[in-house]
Structures are given as structure tokens and as C-alpha cells.
Design a binder for these strands. Structure first.
Length: 187
DNA sequence: CCCTGATTCGC
DNA sequence: GCGAATCAGG
């Protein structure tokens, strides 16, 4: 993909709006977050007020001819990152579904099996670069169950662990795959 | 492990 | 100029 003027403009815009490199890459399509970051640097568009890791100058990776294998001790952090989307004032199209958007991150007890997710993931490629709409980073392991009104600010996705091959967490999977209620003729 | 941006460097 | 690989941090 070329960095056309338009793409560069969009890059600048999104970057200035505080989107992360990966988010921008996702909307631009066809580029990796590294590409975005690289471009940002080349454009000298670093730092937009609040950069997460503001480690300007500390040390440069000296070209040590010797490989220095270091073992890092990782402390376990158990924080769930809720998938929140910065709702845009003008959402293109709302996925109409009747869900009582109150499925919080903590597997809350949902009254009854209400929601019937009509989530038709089309072959949807990249989200048509539109508003400063930024679907969060829905990775392969995050529950993609939408929560709340897409038109509202607090719209987000469940974000729970969704296992290896399911788009939803175990909880939402059950809701999603519930056979249209009692549709069986008991012999 | 997930994510973030920063830097380097071969192409 | 580009961006994968790598580094460094949360």
C-alpha cells in the first residue's frame, strides 16, 4: 500500500486524535502498526500530548557484538482491559439487536435469555475508514459480544477471554448459540 | 500474554 | 522512504 496523500492525512488526523498505532493501522488497512509508527516518525509526528511510554532518551541499544540473553521476570498482572469504543457522534449504521445491554465484564447474571445476536460478520474487510470510529483491538481471544447501544458512548465489547476458537467467551457463547428456544417437538 | 510507542537497519 | 524486527515499558 502506498502512502497516498489521503492516507497520510488520515494518519495525521487519527494520530492527533490519540488513536494508537495499531488502531490507525487497522483503519488504514494494508499496513501494520509498525508501518504506521515508522511513518509517524518520518513525518516527525511523535508525541501527541500523552504518550503512553514516554521514554524519550535513556539509552541506545549499543551495537554490542555479543548477544546478551537476559531473562526477564514477569510479574503477573491480572487486569482485564475492557473493550471500550469511543463512540462517534455519527455512527454509520447501528446493528439492530435487542439486547439488554447490561452484560458487564463480570459475568453478570442476565435475567433471561434475551439477546439474540444477529451478528452477521460479513466478509467485512476493513472498516470503511470513516469517522474517528475505532473498534478496539478485538484480538482472536477477546469476546466480541457487543454491549450497549452502539450509538451511545458507553458502547463496548465484552472483552473476556474467548478461548481459541470462539468469538465469544463461554458465557456469551451459550447465549449466542441457544437454539431458538423450545423448537423441538417432544416426540 | 496482551498491548503501547521507539529505534534500528536492510531493502 | 518503507516497515519488519527488535527494544523497552505498562
Amino acid at each position: 500500500m502506498n502512502w497516498t496523500d489521503e492516507r497520510v492525512e488520515l494518519l495525521k488526523k487519527l494520530w492527533s486524535e490519540g488513536l494508537s498505532a495499531s488502531q490507525i493501522a487497522a483503519q488504514l488497512g494494508g499496513v501494520s502498526r509498525n508501518a504506521v509508527i515508522g511513518k509517524v516518525h518520518r513525518l516527525k509526528l511523535s508525541g501527541r500530548g500523552k504518550t503512553t511510554t514516554a521514554a524519550p532518551r535513556s539509552k541506545k541499544p549499543a551495537p554490542a557484538p555479543v548477544t546478551t540473553p537476559r531473562s526477564a521476570t514477569t510479574s503477573n498482572v491480572s487486569s482485564m482491559s475492557a473493550a471500550s469504543v469511543s463512540a462517534s457522534p455519527a455512527a454509520p449504521r447501528a446493528t439492530v439487536m435487542k439486547s439488554s445491554g447490561s452484560a458487564a465484564l463480570q459475568a453478570d447474571i442476565l435475567a433471561d435469555a434475551v439477546a439474540e445476536p444477529i451478528i452477521r460478520s460479513n466478509e467485512n474487510v476493513v472498516v470503511p475508514i470513516s469517522r474517528h470510529l475505532t473498534l478496539l483491538q478485538l484480538t482472536e481471544r477477546t469476546c466480541k459480544w457487543p454491549v450497549g447501544d452502539p450509538l451511545h458512548e458507553d458502547f463496548h465489547f465484552c472483552g473476556h477471554e474467548s478461548g481459541e476458537s470462539s468469538p465469544y467467551c463461554s458465557y456469551h457463547s451459550k447465549l449466542a448459540f441457544q437454539p431458538t428456544a423450545e423448537r423441538r417437538r417432544a416426540r
